[in-house]
Design a protein around this nucleic acid. Sequence first.
DNA 1: GTCTATACCCAGATAGAC
DNA 2: GTCTATCTGGGTATAGAC
Lengths: 231, 231
Amino acid sequence: MTKQKYKPGKIRERNNENILAAAEQEFVLHGFKGTSMQSIADRAGVPKANIHYYFKNKANLYRSLLESIMQVWNEVLSDITPDSDPADVLSRFIRSKMELSYTHPNASKIFAMEIIQGAPHLREYLSNNMRTWMKERTAVIQSWIDQDKIRAIDPTHLIFMIWSTTQHYADFETQILEVTNKRQYEPDDIDQITHFLIDIIFTRLGLEQPQLEPFRPQPEEETSEPASSPL
Amino acid sequence: MTKQKYKPGKIRERNNENILAAAEQEFVLHGFKGTSMQSIADRAGVPKANIHYYFKNKANLYRSLLESIMQVWNEVLSDITPDSDPADVLSRFIRSKMELSYTHPNASKIFAMEIIQGAPHLREYLSNNMRTWMKERTAVIQSWIDQDKIRAIDPTHLIFMIWSTTQHYADFETQILEVTNKRQYEPDDIDQITHFLIDIIFTRLGLEQPQLEPFRPQPEEETSEPASSPL
DNA sequence: GTCTATACCCAGATAGAC
DNA sequence: GTCTATCTGGGTATAGAC
């Protein structure tokens, strides 16, 4: 009879997270149109009607997922200024992206599928936010070039290169594990790839290879975040 | 009444190609599960039952598409030997991949979505063919290192880097065009990106930048190949 | 807030007339 | 070889009892 000390809305919050985690799995496996509300309900262990009660409809649920993904996406490379040390900022950029590929592969995959299919649910967001995001970053990189901090390079394609190479390890995980004959990535793999990418890019930019702390993922906390948290 | 000089099976062949081209479009937009046979039929301008007559079922049609994609995929980097000139082989590798991203973006996208979703229709192929493909290539690159033709580097991740950076321009086309504020890629863009990638990679490998013929796509022939040929 | 039952629609696939 | 009509299952969404 001891009434649990859940603060109001705690149950709803937990249900929300369970449903989002289940939806993430299903959307990765079958895409937006190919995923059924029933399969999400089954995986989350709730009746199908409850998902409609919480999220209204499938498009809404999917958009909630995309929003939580874009939120994390926007945190990387947010501390870049003309006065920054390029080696510091770029190595942390590459490293953060690699860590995200390791810790949140499904988020990366859902984003990738959304873009590949023409970004039907994300077009507005892209044109509103992405272009200015890019303009600001490339302007800073160009200022580094003008200050002779790095060798001249096309800043836009440099960012595309870092995006593509790091996200590749999340999105094409299946192919990479098959080809390299591994069962799963280990933290050491993430370190090795991060060094590989920094090595190639920094050589071209005329930067010294930085010393990096090895990547050690935090042991999964009990309920601080759901296991497959939306990115 | 002049009986057309179509060789036997010509009509069937044309129908096949139309259906495959329509299927390619639909599978890119909606994924395997999300695509309906009706929408493929509508796009191809044939009754739905005919597709079942030609391809038996959806999975079969999809696999036919994947096979034609893998066929083209396998042609690149097929002429690599320990005696080859690394600068020549690698620059043509990068260039071919960039040209494929330009000429066959949908093929790249379908392949990407298949891998992202866990390669349910391609797993067997991957484990049978891909690992030996990779072993052979990385062995040759390692031999170049042993011969001091290029600076030491991890051959496997070098190939991943070329795959990811080149395919990115096909798969993430929507995002890239939005961010760079373009309506579509031009042949000049392909040249510029190719040079960008060769520049960075060759600098790290200690190779001279090669002279490259500019990329000029052949003017679309009338019926030599369907407009949206399967890769 | 929760879940059963159901309305309504569209999917893949095939039978069978042409 | 072609296409209409139809079978059967599963989809989204909601009404309404609990």
